[in-house]
Amino acid sequence: MKNGMQKLLLVTVIGAFALGGCASTMQYGDAGSAKPISTEFGSSDLQQIAEAMVDSMIIFPPMVELTSARRPVVSVDKVKNKTMQHIDTESITDSIRTKLIRSGKFRFIDRTTDDQTIEELKTQQDSGLVDKKTAVQFGQQIGAEFLLTSNFSEIRQKVGSTTDVYYKFTMSLKNLKTGILEWSDEKEIRKVFTRGTFGG
């Protein structure tokens, strides 16, 4: 009995040393790593969604045709977050917008900076500081031809020590003039977490 206790103690001590060798380190990580840490929405999930949406959109044949001669102007709508998590969904649409701009296929208007734009234009018009010839006039902006809309949902199941989370991100490109959805796609992600015997 005593022998058993001693062994247990030894294993614990060595275990603590071994763990100590791996724990408590500080280092830069890979910003693009796909290693999941929890079933919560993570950085890799965001990157996977953004890449999947952009890849699908720029190779969709009608989009290839549409963007071959011109770069349509698109506006991005807020994501309808139907998950139970608080997620910075603007970060997802920001990634998607950035990739689409960098593809050279689309141009975007940004409604989130309108207040600053109005303030700047007012200053240019009214402050008397700016040369009237170079001051930007109101009512010159280009209206968006398309609206990028998205839905984000989650189905969470928990049985015993297993947590299974299914995410679905759906995105559509709506023609604002005709109301037709010109493109749509969805990205599914499934994350399964099984709690180990030692709580790992």
Binding site: G32, S44, Q48, D55, R102, S103, G104
Partner: peptide
């Protein structure tokens, strides 16, 4: 876009054949 790409998970069940696809950024 050097270094900007992200890794994607790939799950291969036993003896499975699977395709992975990529689209150029521009």
């Amino acid at each position: 876009n050097s270094g900007a790409g992200s890794w994607k998970p790939l799950l291969l069940t036993g003896r499975e054949t699977k395709t992975v696809q990529g689209v150029a950024p521009d």
